[in-house]
Design a protein around this nucleic acid. Structure first.
Lengths: 94, 94
DNA sequence: CTATATTAGCCAATATTTGACAAGTCAAAA
DNA sequence: TTTTGACTTGTCAAATATTGGCTAATATAG
């Protein structure tokens, strides 16, 4: 699940408009639209804000957001999966 | 294992100087020094070049380099490990 | 149709990264 | 103990990437 999809889901479940959320984030609507479609990435602080506005779990959204970042880093890399596994091993043992 | 450490290892095993490698990368010596100590990150193309100059396995170096990038992304994030696990699951199933 | 919501494309502002340069430390050789 | 060579530190500038605003286009609902 991508962050944008999840945001759209949360937003629509509460009958909110992009216009309303973008106002609270202090960005314009086209920008928010792009975030929802994954054309642009949200900033960390925006994710935190959105969690609060949408009454969603902050850790959930931050996790999804981080997954997006990670996948962007290893995108198209032949050795991406292996790098992920190594990263996990390195971070887990200490 | 960090990329910088591995590069230093390879370099010293072949009795090369930072000066010689940085010349081939077309950066100055201080810059290369920083890369070795992990103060700056190498660019992907530089890693590829270094693999060839140092007669090392390109995939190995790229993997280590990617691990560095990944760890930088999740650095200090409470949910970092979980994000890594999710990322792995997402990328592995397809 | 009309009005509102969303999306697309382009350019500007800002932030981050990358690099050069000057000066410093350190160790070994002279 | 001066000199030399390898490496490091700190700071600033150039290059690049990210973020955002604006305008116009498209879609959707009434």
């Amino acid at each position: 699940m991508k962050l944008g999809e999840r945001l759209k889901e949360l937003r629509e479940n509460q009958g909110l408009l992009q216009r309303q959320l973008s106002a609270q984030l202090e960005i314009d609507t086209p920008m928010f639209s792009k975030i929802e479609r994954g054309e642009r990435r949200a900033k960390r602080e925006q994710v935190v804000l959105l969690a609060s506005i949408l009454k969603a779990n902050e850790n959930e959204l931050l996790t999804i957001w981080l997954v997006d970042q990670i996948l962007a880093v290893i995108d198209k890399e032949k050795v991406g999966v292996q790098a992920l596994k190594f990263a996990l091993r390195e971070i887990e043992q200490q």
